[in-house]
Every structure is written in structure tokens, then in C-alpha cells.
């Protein structure tokens, strides 16, 4: 029930004029400063409504007097950083690898950039520091499938391996399990590879039969001594670093129905200078030729 506004005799303050069952409420207004700040926020919101993009209606939306968009802003931000890096990136893009390496400051820039690019693009497959993962070759071990020179790495990264790019590196190991070799021959060649190249004990196994099968079927690509062939992307078998693991089962599986590693082409995602930077970084990991 509204009552008359009156002065409260105890506190000396005014009441609001409301009464509930005989209880009257003291009028405690918001502090003046708070109230004015509140009015100010309302005023600024109107201002923002006018200045910035705000409300969408029939044919479009209110663009605001300033014409501001976050998209333009990010374009400008990117343009700014590109301009800042331009001098260095242009040099990295145009100079030869030898010239870049001769300029310690430039090399430093390339390696820092390359490291960061590697972490967000390559690491999920090739592992931290290029340590490798099953099916994804180690890049720091010096056991190269396609080649560890700067030019070879640059080519691999640019076009990828068995990617959609027409210039991609590509090759295919035949599926010997699909009738090319008999089961005993496959067992024999797996024994031979496992013992002679992967360096395991023969344990009384006779690998001479396997050697014959190997020389007749596999040596064209992997080499008589298991040294591999970079032109074919056939990995070195005489090594301790293997793409698909060290077990005899892995060799068997590869001969029966081979896995063929795919690496995406990076020329669609990274510009040429950035690819050179990441190439230099990969080369510096410890395996570079």
C-alpha cells in the first residue's frame, strides 16, 4: 500500500512511500556517481551503435559511421607483420641455400621461423624435433628415404610424397602377397631382411633361400646390400631406423601388402620462402646431408 512519504524518526531519512503490513521502507537511492556512470554507459552504447557495425535489417546491416570491420583490421595486421618480415623473407626466398648459410643473422631468422612452422605443421607426423613416429620417418636420424640435401628436402616439402600435387614424389612397392611370391618365399625373404639388414641373430635359420628371393625381387629398388634407392624412395633396409618398425612381422606385412607413406604437399599452405626456412630447420636437426 502506498503511503505518504515521510521522514523516519529514528534515522532521519525519507521513506519510499511503500508500506507492507505496517513496515515502511527507507529510501536508499543509488549513489550519484554510480547513477551517472550508468547513464554514461547508455550514452556510449548509443554512440557505439552509430559508429560501429550494429544492427542487421532487411537488405543488410548498419555498417556504422567509421566503417570498421575486424576483417579489415586483421588484413592490416597481417600486412604490417609481412612488411616487417619482408626484407628477411625476400632474401630467404631469393638467395640460394649456400648464401643464406653464409649470413648468420639471416640463417638465425630462417631457423627460428622454420622451427615454429615445423611445430604447428610437421610435428604431429614427424614427432618433436623430427624424432619420427611409426610410419612417419625420422628427419633427425640421417636415414633419408628421398634425400637429405637441402634441395631434396625442399622438393619433398614443396610437392609432398604421393600427394595430390602433380610434381609429388611417388613410387610404389608391389604387393608381393598378391601372387607375386609364394608364402614360403615371403617367409624366407623376411627372414633374410630381418637377419642380414635389420641385424638380428640368425638362430640357426638358413637365409640363403631368402637372399635369392631378395636379389631377384627386391634388390632393384632396395639394392643388393639393402642400401636403398633415393630415386625410388625405397628406404635403406640395412639400418637401425625403420619406417614401419623393427619386427619381423612388420617386414612380412610390408611384403604382403605394402603401406605407402603419404605426405601432403605444402605449396598450397606455405609460401616458398617459408618452405625454405623449414627446410633449413629440418636440415639442421642433425641428419642433414
Amino acid at each position: 500500500m502506498p503511503t505518504k512519504i515521510e521522514k523516519d524518526s529514528v534515522t532521519g531519512r525519507e521513506t519510499t512511500g511503500h508500506e507492507w503490513d505496517g513496515l515502511k521502507e527507507l529510501n536508499t537511492p543509488l549513489p550519484k556517481w554510480w547513477l551517472y556512470v550508468f547513464y554514461l554507459t547508455i550514452a556510449t552504447s548509443v554512440l557505439q551503435f552509430v559508429l560501429y557495425p550494429s544492427f542487421s535489417y532487411g537488405p543488410g546491416y548498419l555498417h556504422g559511421v567509421l566503417g570498421y570491420t575486424t576483417r579489415q583490421e586483421v588484413d592490416q595486421d597481417v600486412a604490417k607483420i609481412v612488411a616487417k618480415r619482408k626484407a628477411d623473407m625476400d632474401k630467404i626466398g631469393t638467395l640460394s641455400f649456400a648464401q643464406i648459410k653464409a649470413d648468420p643473422k639471416l640463417l638465425e631468422v630462417a631457423l627460428v621461423d622454420g622451427k615454429q612452422v615445423f611445430a604447428s605443421n610437421c610435428q604431429p607426423c614427424h614427432g618433436a624435433g623430427g624424432g619420427g613416429n611409426p610410419g612417419y620417418p625420422a628427419l633427425a636420424a640421417g636415414a633419408w628415404i628421398w634425400g637429405g640435401t637441402l634441395d631434396a628436402i625442399q622438393k619433398t616439402v614443396t610437392y609432398g610424397v604421393r600427394s595430390d600435387d602433380p610434381n609429388a614424389r611417388t613410387s610404389a612397392m608391389p604387393a608381393f602377397g598378391a601372387g607375386l611370391l609364394t608364402q614360403p618365399q615371403i617367409q624366407a625373404v623376411a627372414d633374410y631382411v630381418w637377419v642380414t639388414f635389420y641385424g638380428n641373430k640368425a638362430d640357426g635359420r638358413d637365409v640363403s633361400e631368402g637372399a635369392k628371393v631378395f636379389n631377384a625381387n627386391c634388390a632393384v629398388c632396395h639394392g643388393v646390400k639393402g642400401e636403398g634407392n633415393k630415386l625410388m624412395g625405397a628406404p635403406r633396409l640395412a639400418s637401425q631406423v625403420h619406417l614401419y618398425g623393427n619386427t619381423r612381422e612388420a617386414i612380412m606385412a610390408q611384403v604382403m601388402g605394402p603401406k605407402m607413406g603419404v605426405m601432403p604437399a605444402w605449396n598450397t599452405r606455405l609460401d616458398p620462402a617459408t618452405i625454405k626456412a623449414v627446410t633449413l630447420y629440418v636440415h639442421s636437426l642433425g641428419g642433414g646431408e
Binding site: 604431429p124 607426423c125 610410419g135 603401406k259 603419404v262 605426405m263 601432403p264 598450397t268 599452405r269
Partner: peptide, 8 residues
């Protein structure tokens, strides 16, 4: 899309 191989 396309950043990694389908195998991966």
C-alpha cells in the same frame, strides 16, 4: 582438411 594424410 588436407593438412594431414587420411592415414594420419
Amino acid at each position: 582438411g588436407g593438412k594431414y594424410s587420411s592415414d594420419w
